[in-house]
Simulated scan of single mutants.
Amino acid sequence: MSMNQETLLAGRKVSKKPNWFKFDVRAYTMIGALLAIWVLFSLLHERFLTPTNLSNLFLQMSVTSILAIGMVLVIVAGQIDLSIGSLVGLTGGIAAILNVWYEWNTIPVIIATLLIGAAIGFIQGWIIAYRAVPAFIVTLGGMLMFRGILFGTTGSVTIAPLSPSMKSIGQSYTGDIIGWIFGILALAAAGYFILRKRAARAKVGFEVEPLAVSLVRMAVIGVLVIGFVYLMNSYKGIPVPFVMVIVLALVFTFISRNTVFGRQVYAIGGNPEAARLSGINIKRRILLVFVLCNTLAAVAALVLTARLNAATMSSGQNYELDAIAACVIGGTSLMGGTGTIVGAVIGALVMASLDNGMSLMNLESFWQYIVKGGILVLAVYVDIYTRQKKKT
Score class of each variant (00 low, 15 high):
residue 298 A to P: 09
residue 250 L to N: 00
residue 97 I to S: 12
residue 175 G to V: 12
residue 38 W to V: 15
residue 323 A to E: 02
residue 366 F to I: 15
residue 149 I to M: 12
residue 296 L to G: 05
residue 10 A to C: 06
residue 209 E to T: 05
residue 170 G to Q: 11
residue 176 D to K: 13
residue 105 N to P: 13
residue 188 A to Y: 13
residue 385 Y to E: 12
residue 122 F to W: 08
residue 177 I to F: 03
residue 2 S to Y: 07
residue 251 V to K: 00
residue 147 R to G: 04
residue 75 I to R: 06
residue 193 F to P: 05
residue 91 T to C: 12
residue 217 R to E: 13
residue 294 N to M: 05
residue 242 F to W: 07
residue 296 L to S: 03
residue 119 A to H: 11
residue 341 I to M: 01
residue 238 I to W: 11
residue 378 L to C: 05
residue 156 S to Q: 14
residue 145 M to I: 12
residue 120 I to G: 07
residue 183 G to L: 13
residue 206 F to G: 07
residue 385 Y to D: 12
residue 75 I to N: 14
residue 15 S to Y: 06
residue 304 L to Q: 01
residue 289 V to A: 03
residue 116 I to Q: 13
residue 197 K to E: 00
residue 57 L to H: 02
residue 328 V to E: 08
residue 51 P to D: 03
residue 46 E to L: 10
residue 315 S to P: 14
residue 160 A to F: 03
residue 320 E to V: 15
residue 191 G to H: 15
residue 339 G to F: 00
residue 379 A to P: 15
residue 206 F to P: 11
residue 353 S to W: 02
residue 296 L to C: 05
residue 271 N to V: 09
residue 32 G to R: 04
residue 326 A to L: 06
residue 389 K to W: 01
residue 164 P to K: 14
residue 89 G to P: 13
residue 239 P to N: 10
residue 159 I to C: 10
residue 188 A to N: 12
residue 226 I to W: 04
residue 297 A to N: 06
residue 305 T to R: 06
residue 67 L to G: 01
residue 289 V to K: 08
residue 392 T to C: 09
residue 367 W to G: 00
residue 197 K to P: 15
residue 340 T to V: 06
residue 96 A to V: 08
residue 170 G to F: 08
residue 172 S to A: 12
residue 62 S to P: 09
residue 74 V to N: 12
residue 157 V to W: 00
residue 61 M to G: 13
residue 272 P to G: 05
residue 139 T to I: 06
residue 179 G to R: 15
residue 100 V to H: 09
residue 50 T to D: 09
residue 89 G to Q: 03
residue 47 R to H: 11
residue 260 V to P: 14
residue 385 Y to R: 01
residue 212 A to Q: 15
residue 348 A to P: 05
residue 361 M to L: 07
residue 142 G to I: 04
residue 1 M to S: 10
residue 258 N to E: 02
residue 79 Q to C: 07
residue 75 I to S: 14
residue 261 F to G: 04
residue 252 F to E: 10
residue 316 G to R: 05
residue 127 I to Y: 02
residue 308 L to G: 06
residue 279 G to Q: 07
residue 158 T to R: 03
residue 339 G to W: 02
residue 192 Y to A: 13
residue 216 V to R: 09
residue 117 G to V: 07
residue 32 G to P: 13
residue 215 L to I: 09
residue 30 M to E: 11
residue 332 T to S: 04
residue 74 V to H: 09
residue 29 T to N: 06
residue 191 G to P: 07
residue 120 I to E: 14
residue 217 R to P: 00
residue 206 F to I: 06
residue 30 M to H: 03
residue 221 I to T: 11
residue 2 S to T: 13
residue 66 I to C: 03
residue 150 L to T: 08
residue 237 G to S: 12
residue 392 T to I: 14
residue 123 I to W: 08
residue 231 L to Q: 15
residue 157 V to F: 10
residue 120 I to K: 15
residue 199 A to R: 11
residue 31 I to Y: 02
residue 168 S to A: 10
residue 316 G to I: 11
residue 285 R to Q: 09
residue 288 L to K: 00
residue 132 A to H: 12
residue 127 I to D: 00
residue 321 L to A: 02
residue 24 D to P: 13
residue 202 A to T: 13
residue 71 M to V: 07
residue 374 G to E: 10
residue 161 P to R: 02
residue 138 V to K: 06
